[in-house]
């Protein structure tokens, strides 16, 4: 269990999660980016930039 940086709620994160994956907090629905693993660190996911896409 990891702590949401926005609301400090518990966020369950899969064991095999990788850095730069997105998880969603169950308590406040914030989009969170995994910025580090072991230990898992979460940050509010940055806004989509204007040139993102395929």
């Amino acid at each position: 269990m990891t702590v949401c940086p926005e609301c400090r709620g518990a966020v369950s994160v899969p064991d095999d999660v990788m850095a730069a994956e997105i998880v969603v907090c169950g308590e406040c629905s914030s989009e969170l980016e995994v910025v580090a693993v072991t230990p898992t660190v979460l940050a509010l996911a940055p806004e989509v930039e204007e040139d993102w896409g395929e």
Binding site: M18, A20, E21, I22, E33, V34, W52
Partner: peptide, 13 residues
Amino acid sequence: VATRVRVEERMLF
């Protein structure tokens, strides 16, 4: 190289 690791990136790994 990936800004976000999405389903596609996991599949590629």
